[in-house]
């Protein structure tokens, strides 16, 4: 159940990233209360001091705020969250393009690839679903 962390980068930075992802993805909605440091630390299976440091880092960016002694809330600034969401998406797209670039794809052929995948998944020909989904279908 512990959060997956890689072994090279500082732990607090990775924790901050995970919480940021939680906010961007709506797991922690704008304006909502965050779990306590202790709860988050237990969930992630990390040291509470490290979690504290991660939250302090996020506070610095304005993404979360401390409400006196009651705990922390996610910012109500939906525009800020939207901006971070777009930034993160762009970053992911960039690294995706970079990896495809190593395989010899340029931006256009990458776009075609994505479109092709999407059509196949959304299209009427659902025969191409993986075997894992087959059992679900027969149940219905």
């Amino acid at each position: 159940m512990a959060w997956e962390l890689d072994s090279e980068r500082p732990i607090y930075a990775q924790l901050a990233e995970k919480i940021k992802m939680g906010i961007i993805s709506g797991q922690y909605p704008a304006g909502s209360w965050l779990p306590s440091v202790r709860e988050l630390a237990a969930e992630a299976a990390v040291n509470p001091n490290t979690m504290q440091k991660a939250l302090t880092e996020l506070e610095r960016t304005g993404l979360i705020a401390t409400r006196r002694t009651n705990g922390r809330t996610v910012t109500e600034d939906a525009a800020l969250i939207g901006r971070l969401r777009e930034e993160t998406a762009r970053e992911l797209a960039r690294s995706f393009l970079h990896k495809l670039g190593e395989l010899g794809y340029d931006a256009n052929s990458a776009a075609e690839l994505v479109q092709g995948l999407q059509e196949r998944e959304e299209g009427p020909g659902e025969k191409q679903t993986e075997t894992g989904n087959e059992s679900v279908k027969t149940d219905r």
Partner: peptide, 15 residues
């Protein structure tokens, strides 16, 4: 600190 090692050496404490 653990994070100092990771920051300075770019590897886990174990490594």
């Amino acid at each position: 600190s653990v994070d100092n090692i990771r920051e300075q050496h770019g590897k886990s404490v174990d490594a």
